[in-house]
């Protein structure tokens, strides 16, 4: 597709507007309002940075009723280098809330695995909140063939 200069400028303007309006994780789209609100409540208004946290989720979920996910945050988990909590959001579910993992020094590692329900193909977002107040996030798109809301 060949873009005219006018179209290219239009695209650039649009992308810039998106970046300001919603939390922009990918070039394609911003997170939903419901997810953004939960995220901002969790982070105290801070926009998460990339890095430190890795969200592992299958590219294609065979069954939306039980999708395995793992979060892993790089941290010594001692002293001031501590992960307090990790929040998981399902951006395309009727309710984006999934779970919040709370860690302590006794966790040893800021890592957790669980199984979640995905209503349809969507982004899963993981946000880590550190003891020093910094926040990080990772996002993965999961394609769902059989939706998991039992409807």
């Amino acid at each position: 597709m060949k873009l005219t200069r006018r179209q290219t400028l239009g695209l650039a303007g649009g992308a810039a507007a998106l970046a300001v309006s919603g939390l922009q994780f990918t070039a394609a789209h911003a997170a939903s309002d419901a997810s953004t609100k939960r995220m901002m409540d969790f982070t105290g208004g801070k926009e998460p940075a990339k890095g430190k946290i890795t969200l592992t989720a299958p590219e294609i979920a065979e069954n939306g009723n039980t999708v395995p996910i793992t979060v892993d945050v790089e941290s010594a988990m001692s002293g001031d280098d501590l992960v307090e909590s990790v929040m998981i959001l399902a951006d395309g579910n009727p309710n984006p809330a999934v779970a919040t993992f709370n860690f302590t020094e006794l966790s040893g590692k800021a890592s957790a695995t669980t199984r979640m329900r995905l209503a349809k193909t969507q982004d899963v977002i993981a946000i880590a909140k550190m003891k020093d107040g910094s926040v990080f996030s990772d996002i993965k798109q999961v394609k769902v063939t059989i939706g998991g809301c039992g409807g």
């Binding site: 793992t70 309710n95 779970a99 709370n102 006794l106 890592s111 695995t113 669980t114 199984r115 329900r117």
Partner: peptide, 27 residues
């Protein structure tokens, strides 16, 4: 908890699958 001290916890919402499964670590 381990010997009375908190190790790990999870606040769970309805999007966690039936028969909730958690894998985590403890030092």
């Amino acid at each position: 908890e381990f010997n009375g001290a908190p190790v790990f916890s999870c606040d769970i919402d309805p999007a966690i699958s039936a028969n909730p499964f958690f894998e985590f670590n403890a030092k």
